[in-house]
Design a binder for these strands. Structure first.
Lengths: 197, 197
DNA sequence: AGTTTCTTCCTAATGACTCTAGGAAAGAGG
DNA sequence: CCTCTTTCCTAGAGTCATTAGGAAGAAACT
């Protein structure tokens, strides 16, 4: 019997490919095994169970996305960097819808596995260091990071879910939102609480 | 044999309760049937299949959420209305995590069913009419609506997914984001494209 | 009341999926 | 060549979704 040469990474990658093709919730152990030309049971030597596999796909996606963003923002600053960051984020989600979906499910990921993965930590560092160009101090910096992540994540999410039904092209709204985000970050310290409408 | 008195609405409601308790992806036909004291197959008289049930839960949630928002914003204007809107949105998501999850999956809902449900349409009307207080014209209005929805949706999503690990209290960041959103809407027309960092 | 008809719920069955346990065989190191 | 570990398989139990067809309650008609 020829060995298939399975590893946890190969199983994860196959799962990720499948997720992009048919959607994350059609990624089953059976389907992954089928694609690898292997019986279902064989996968359990490399991956604890389906949930674990999903977690690994999420981690893989986080790593890949972070690398993309790092490459895109390298050598840029200010609005340039912001736009590059946001577009890299969105492009990744478009190219890998299944992987992206995996990143946004409430993660009950194996903590040990998570500690090894550089993606999530790296992503946060990247974001903070990019926003530092806007000269924000804590706790403003954290608030700004959260706001930015919310906006990007939410936009991409709604777009993917078909939430933007209006005739206005999504591209245009996206560009406009980035403009707005930039100005917002520039003037972050100005709009403190208070001042009702 | 005592009849259980099933209807599509009762099945949907049971599914929604289950979703809030154990998470949307643990809502199975079997589980719903068990809770209703009925055999799995009986449900298929009222609901086409599992996907249809999920869609109905999503629609139910949309309706409920819209009603909450409408109540919260009634009689308010400007920033007051914005904050009420956002908090009603977020509170609903916190109280009904399963239902909320249902609203954000890529919906392939029965179009006929969707046409009957007032929720989604009503939600959009509400949002537009609230933002009209900021005196925006198309296409700015649509862009602003999209931005606002993205931010709220994204924030709540990340929060639910445990994406805010930093020490800074989420409540504070939330308040700050609403402040920022308000100022942003007030000055929307000012930050057009161009002006690099 | 008796009959018809519709709806509601059941039994039965199929096929897909997850996951466990125990065995065989391939490759590595001695 | 022998032993050990890893890799993969066979077998099997349990859950789930879904369909088909039947029985029993309810309501409407005679």
């Amino acid at each position: 019997m020829a060995r298939a040469g399975l590893t946890a990474d190969r199983v994860t990658l196959t799962g990720a490919e499948l997720a992009d093709e048919v959607g994350l919730d059609h990624v089953t152990m059976s389907a992954v095994a089928r694609r690898l030309g292997v019986k279902d049971a064989s996968l359990y030597a490399h991956v604890r169970n389906l949930e674990d596999l999903r977690g690994r796909i999420a981690l893989l996606a986080a790593d890949e996305k972070t690398i993309r963003i790092a490459e895109a923002t390298a050598g840029r600053a200010g609005k340039d960097a912001l736009v590059a960051y946001a577009n890299a984020y969105r492009d990744y989600a478009h190219e890998h819808p299944g992987r992206y979906t995996a990143t946004q499910i409430p993660m009950h990921i194996d903590p040990e596995l998570l500690a090894q993965a550089p993606g999530p930590r790296r992503a946060i560092e990247l974001t903070y260091s990019m926003l530092r160009a806007y000269r924000l101090d804590e706790p403003d910096l954290t608030d700004a990071v959260r706001m930015m992540r919310s906006m990007l994540h939410g936009f991409i999410n709604l777009e993917a879910a078909g939430g933007f039904a209006h005739a206005r092209p999504v591209e245009d709204s996206w560009a406009r939102c980035l403009d707005a985000l930039h100005t917002l970050l520039q003037n972050w310290h100005e709009h403190r609480e208070g001042d009702p409408a």
